[in-house]
């Protein structure tokens, strides 16, 4: 494998004892410093895949290499080098925030003054100082998620695996977390593999995305390129009144007929770059004596991509 690749997944399969074929032979690589996202409907196999990467589940077929270690054969070395925050943030319900972080620091072999230093860093990194002496069950769900992330980072892992890290966070904490993950990536060079249900998160945060459906990767690329597969940008004009037949004819002459669609008082034209083409297009239309009430540039979204590949819409919670 090339030393650039932090994660190499080859023909990975998971069949649960119950018979569920949750992952059906997927392959992908994750490069150093990348934020790699997995987007897919409920039951797609995201958690199953991440858990196999994180040594929590046995691999039925195929293999995973993390930092050149084989996840099955060298699981101990893998565990020392990754941080894993599970989908359900389950933490020790019998300890305080500070006790928990301290325990995790020690678990990774730190001792003496190092412990105190790392605990402090961890509390600061996720802004947990004010909760330091609180019992974990007393914390809100969102704070528990942040604590979960904090303990997953105490040993400066080279790879961070996050299963739906922002589910249950309010918008403010969600964007805080995005900034944090970007900071971890740029300042510490941490590689991140994460699953998500949020389109915006996948779009703004992930360098590359795999869209997973029924245990298979149906598309994998940068968010930009995935959106390109949907097609061109569209400019939509809202008109004062519907176009006359003559106006329609001249529209079809002016623009490529295939790019034009007309529906009642809406006129839509496909262009390569919506923002750049907007003014020229508007000018042409006004020259045809069409009165324009408003205009909108529509670009393909990940939701469109998702719909194209999975036949489902992303559930947007926010």
């Amino acid at each position: 494998m090339s030393d650039e690749n932090i994660v190499v997944v080859q023909h990975l399969e998971k069949k649960y004892k119950s018979g569920t074929h949750a992952v059906k032979g997927i392959s992908f690589n994750v490069k150093k410093g990348e934020i790699f996202g997995m987007l897919g409907p409920n039951g797609a196999g995201k958690t199953t895949t991440l858990q196999m990467m994180g040594t929590l589940l046995g691999i039925t077929e195929g293999k995973i290499k993390i930092l050149d270690y084989d996840v099955s054969a060298e699981s101990n070395l893998v565990r020392e080098n990754i941080g894993f925050a599970l989908q359900e943030a389950g933490l020790d319900s019998l300890s305080t925030v500070k006790e928990l972080i301290t325990f995790h620091v020690k678990l990774f072999g730190f001792s003496g003054a190092d412990v105190e230093k790392r605990v402090e860093q961890s509390l600061s990194l996720l802004d947990l100082h004010e909760y330091s002496n609180q019992m974990i069950p007393e914390l809100s769900g969102g704070t528990q998620r942040r604590l979960d992330l904090a303990v997953s980072l105490v040993h400066d892992p080279k790879l961070l695996i996050l299963d739906e890290p922002t589910t249950g966070l309010d918008p403010a904490h969600r964007s805080d977390l995005w900034s944090l993950l970007k900071k971890l990536k740029s300042e510490k060079g941490i590689t991140i593999v994460m699953s998500t249900h949020y389109m915006e998160e996948a779009d703004v945060l992930c360098d590359r995305l795999a869209i997973i459906d029924s245990g298979e990767i149906v598309a994998i690329d940068t968010p930009q390129k995935l959106k390109k597969t949907i097609g061109k940008d569209r400019i939509e004009f809202k008109l004062f009144k519907s176009l006359s037949d003559e106006q329609i004819r001249s529209m079809k002459e002016r623009f490529d007929e295939a790019d034009v669609s007309i529906k009642e008082s809406f006129f839509t034209v496909k262009v390569d770059d919506g923002e750049e083409a907007l003014l020229d297009t508007l000018k042409s239309i006004i020259e045809m004596d069409v009165k324009v009430k408003g205009t909108k540039v529509l670009r393909p979204t990940l939701d469109d991509v998702y719909l194209k590949y999975t036949g489902k819409r992303l559930e947007e919670v926010q």
Binding site: T55, L56, R79, F84, L86, G90, H104, I161
Partner: peptide, 21 residues
């Protein structure tokens, strides 16, 4: 009893992905 606390919160699994395995 104490083990069940860890099993039921899911913390046991969290620890399985660390050197605690």
């Amino acid at each position: 009893a104490a083990l069940l606390v860890d099993l039921n919160t899911g913390y046991f699994d969290k620890l399985r992905a660390t050197p605690a395995s």
